[in-house]
């Protein structure tokens, strides 16, 4: 990518910025709507951040608002509930990140080794179908499957005699993170393999042939050819996902969470909803949102910087 970009940027003679703009006016004109869209939907809303520093009341105009300084942030970091929610968010994010990468790469490797095309396509289709279900439906399925009242998991465990009485999976805090992790894998694993399969199909077959000549078996070929080949894809995805680490998801915790397990199920997003929308403290909700965004940006650049230091591809 970078090499291509460099040649395109090298003008034959030195021109000023404005001359270059004039020369490329069609390109600029073409990109204009997108830039405007980006400004409108990604930057203009940032003006709302100013709310976090006010005792914001919706009906008043901007100049009548009462400034609060950093009081809202102070409230947040003194609040045990918010700190607990940060912990939950990080924990579930890490679980999702690790499980998501491991299962997707494993499945992609397995699929890549299948020679029967019909079988391979069938598995692939079935495994990525759940991606298109909304979380509301998935949560409903999870609730049914784990129900104490004739849910299939409890039913099987009872029948094989592993337990004496039904386990209330959704009512006990210790199971919750596992349930969220497993639901995420079920829903997204097939979808996540697509990009790895794509980068695997781009591997030059002669590499495999050469490895075979050197006496590599199936496992050695995976280890020494396939995995190194998808490393750059993996790194790029990792950097992008690290930026999302404070987005542990909202729907699944909101839909499956309930009173007794709120200690482990409530995430930052739910906190924002609860105080920002239900309690109408928009300032507090915004402050929590700002905190989340700032941490995310730091994490992305951090991961990017480390990746660069390690001599790998960088995202930016």
């Amino acid at each position: 990518m970078r090499a291509v970009a460099k040649t395109a940027n090298k003008p034959g003679n030195k021109k000023s910025f404005w001359q270059k703009c004039l020369q490329q006016k069609t390109l600029i004109f073409m990109s204009l709507p997108l830039v405007l869209l980006k400004i409108l939907f990604a930057y203009v809303p940032l003006l709302g951040w100013v709310m976090a520093f006010q005792n914001y009341k919706p009906a008043k105009s901007f100049f009548d608002q009462d400034w609060a300084g950093l009081a809202k942030f102070e409230f947040l970091f003194k609040d045990a509930v918010f700190l607990r929610d940060i912990r939950n968010t990080l924990a579930m994010s890490l679980i999702n990140l690790v499980l998501g990468f491991v299962t997707a790469i494993l499945l992609a490797l397995l699929l890549n080794e299948i020679k029967n095309v019909v079988f391979k396509r069938t598995i692939q289709t079935i495994s990525y179908m759940p991606h298109f279900l909304s979380w509301v439906i998935v949560a409903g399925i999870v609730q049914n499957v784990l129900s104490t009242d004739s849910g299939i998991v409890n039913d099987i465990l009872l029948r094989i005699g592993a337990i004496d009485s039904s386990i209330n999976f959704l009512g006990e805090p210790k199971y919750f993170w596992g349930i969220v992790g497993a639901s995420n894998v079920w829903k997204e694993v097939g979808w996540n393999t697509i990009i790895y399969l794509a980068s695997m199909s781009a591997i030059d077959p002669s590499l495999y042939e050469a490895a075979e000549m050197d006496g590599a078996g199936r496992f050695n070929k995976i280890l020494h050819v396939t995995l190194p080949a998808i490393k750059s894809t993996f790194i790029i995805l990792l950097i992008m996902n690290i930026g999302n680490i404070l987005n542990a998801g909202f729907e699944v915790q909101y839909l499956l969470g309930n009173g007794p397990i709120q200690d482990v199920s409530e995430t930052i997003d739910i906190f924002v909803l609860k105080y920002g929308m239900q309690k109408n403290d928009y300032a507090l909700g915004t402050a929590a949102g700002i905190f989340k965004s700032v941490i995310s940006v730091i994490l992305v650049f951090g991961a990017n910087w480390i990746s660069g230091k390690l001599g790998e591809d960088k995202l930016v």
Binding site: S147, T148, D149, N168, G171, N258
Partner: peptide
């Protein structure tokens, strides 16, 4: 009902 606390209003 053991599910009393995990159910929503529809259930």
């Amino acid at each position: 009902d053991p599910e009393a606390f995990t159910q929503n209003k529809d259930q």
